[in-house]
């Protein structure tokens, strides 16, 4: 090899190595972002919690920023109860709809249903919230004789919103189930429905569970839609119809004008929400790993 070509090869190898590092650095962006988010939130949030007192903050039942009372238990209860209603509504409909999509519908119906689900996923949450406010709240007012805003209304709206998440994840895991399972059940004399529900669906249960967890995560983190239909009272709910404030709406409602300790308390609220989400995420990755 002449000196010139040697130099050229060397240059080429250098370029390859440099590009590899460029890609590797780009790949670490998401790591950096997660660390930054955790760092900023936890640092500010835990300082606030220390000032307020961790127990007073998490187990305190009164949120009165003007009196320096920062108890977020009502919001925690609010988030959990709204999510629970959403899960009760969204999970069965979502799973059954996914089963319909994979095992029951004709190609023609599937071609309509698929875009319908995508569109449900694409509608902005503020539009859902507006729809809830002008359409569902009046209906609930007539039915229950209350203000119409509360746990039940928010739960119904969220139940609609988490449908596409549950359907899409369940659908792909149902499609991944071996066809021979179903065929074997049919050959043994089971009906189509029985083969689907007692053989194929159990085989996809981890994937379906992952979809359910993802849907619950979406319900816990939803802000703008809940903002208009939950009532937003920062008090302990007494019934399924009473108005509640969730962790997310607590932040969005007061962040605009909060200062000093009040502001820090809101960041601490976000930390509690974030911990909820991290637990849900961890459950999701655990189920997903087990699936493989």
């Amino acid at each position: 090899m002449t000196a010139l070509t040697k130099k050229k090869t060397q240059k080429k190898i250098n370029k390859e190595v440099i590009m590899k590092w460029v890609f590797a650095i780009a790949a670490s962006t998401s790591i950096l972002c997660v660390f930054l988010i955790c760092g900023f939130l936890f640092y500010n949030g835990f300082t606030a919690m220390a000032k307020i007192g961790v127990f007073d903050f998490i187990a305190g039942t009164r949120w009165k920023p003007s009196n320096e009372l920062f108890g977020i238990l009502p919001m925690i209860v609010g988030s959990i109860s709204v999510t629970l209603i959403a899960a009760i509504i969204g999970i069965p409909i979502g799973i059954l709809c996914a089963i319909y999509l994979v095992y029951f519908c004709s190609d023609r119906v599937g071609k309509i249903l698929k875009p319908v689900i995508d569109l449900l996923a694409g509608i902005p949450s503020i539009v859902y919230g507006f729809f809830g406010l002008v359409c569902i709240v009046p209906i609930m007012q007539d039915l229950t004789g209350t203000s119409g805003k509360g746990i039940l209304t928010a739960g119904i709206l969220l139940g609609m919103m988490i449908l596409p998440t549950i359907i899409n994840v369940s659908e792909s895991s149902l499609r991944a189930v071996e066809k021979s399972y179903y065929e074997g059940a049919l050959a043994l004399g089971a009906t189509h429905e029985r083969s689907v529900f007692f053989v194929s669906v159990p085989a996809a249960k981890s994937g379906i569970l992952a979809g359910v967890i993802l849907g619950i995560g979406r319900a816990v983190g939803e802000t703008m839609a809940v903002n208009y239909v939950a009532g937003n009272q920062a008090v302990m709910p007494t019934s399924i119809l009473s108005g509640v404030r969730t962790l997310t709406t607590n932040i969005v409602l007061e962040m605009g004008y909060a200062t000093d300790l009040h502001r820090e308390a809101l960041i601490a609220t976000a930390v509690v929400l974030f911990i909820f989400i991290l637990i849900i995420n961890a459950a999701f990755s655990y189920v997903k790993r087990r699936m493989k």
């Binding site: 998401s30 997660v34 939130l41 802000t223 932040i251 962040m255 960041i267 929400l273 989400i277 999701f284």
Partner: peptide, 14 residues
């Protein structure tokens, strides 16, 4: 995965 699960309000606050 964690990033995709974080609610938008937390991104906003961050």
């Amino acid at each position: 995965e964690t990033l995709s699960g974080i609610p938008s309000i937390i991104f906003g606050l961050f």
